[in-house]
Write a protein that binds this DNA or RNA. Structure first.
Lengths: 152, 152
DNA sequence: ATGAAATTGATATTCACTTTCGATTATGGC
DNA sequence: GCCATAATCGAAAGTGAATATCAATTTCAT
């Protein structure tokens, strides 16, 4: 994971936004950076912190995640399970990427290719609606669950 | 609105699912049928009922909407405003249609054309993921808001 | 009509999230 | 380095949508 954030001066970035660079915020961000392919809820972050014998108040984690989202260090994703989830913000993509959500096992797969550019052009033309961002989720059966015989 | 539900024997449909066809459920469904182009929350339904001098308990409305969703009479849509919203289920479309959400005025526009069939074929091929349904929202500026000069 | 079973709706509860506020800590000027 | 002060932390209380509880009521098959 050669994330630009490791090189980038995080302290500086926090200050740009008028935030202080505290240990708690650093530790919350660390969890996100250590799991670049996951979509972590507040509770997930709390769990991973506990595994590392770190205790940070729920409110601080909530606040930090919102803060990280504002700084575009993480992106909030809604996977329809009633929890706010966060993934690292990928500055290489100019729009949110899509997610495959398995209805059986709950696994989540990222789809990196955008594939909506044409559609968004069409929307601009047909509806005169200027798309700024999008959110696309596919619900279905993942490779594993398709191959299993499921006697329910 | 030549909705098939008007012709279809609703009472029969409720019974098929083991539900009773009560006046309250009828009245809740009426509100949905009277606003086929809206995306109503529980509170919205309650408001429209009050306008008609009808009082139905919150719990009953919640329960009825969930019931109607199970019967595929309505479809639940999540428009990222923290409320469960419902629209009439369109049996002509084989997948959920998409929504344009204006970030300025909050207006919601349905997009009836699917346009994701190719993409879903590609996903089946590339990821061996079998798409059952999808959820696509576009966030941006609607025609009206684009044309306004907005001094904020 | 009658009674078992479902429904209603006021109220309580849950659950994710936010706010409050006194104690603590980071940061910039000296 | 030290101090002031403004931001932050976190326990606890508060919110608000959604769900569960349960006694009273209604429905429907007989």
């Amino acid at each position: 994971m050669s994330n630009e954030l490791e090189i980038f001066n995080l302290k500086e970035k926090f200050h740009q936004f008028g935030y202080k660079y505290t240990e708690q915020r650093q530790l919350v961000l660390d969890v996100l950076l250590e799991h670049p392919d996951l979509h972590l809820s507040n509770e997930d972050v709390c769990e991973y912190l506990k595994q590392k014998k770190i205790n940070i108040g729920q409110s601080t984690i909530y606040r930090t995640l919102i803060m990280l989202e504002k700084m575009q260090i993480v992106r909030r994703v809604d996977l329809n399970d009633g929890l706010a989830r966060y993934e690292l913000f990928d500055h290489d993509e100019n729009h949110a990427h899509h997610h495959l959500i398995c209805m059986k096992c709950g696994s989540i797969t990222d789809i990196k290719n955008d594939l909506l550019e044409d559609l968004e052009q069409q929307i601009l033309h047909d509806y005169n609606f200027e798309v700024k961002d999008h959110c696309l989720k596919f619900f279905g059966l993942c490779e594993n669950c398709r191959n299993k015989n499921n006697y329910c």
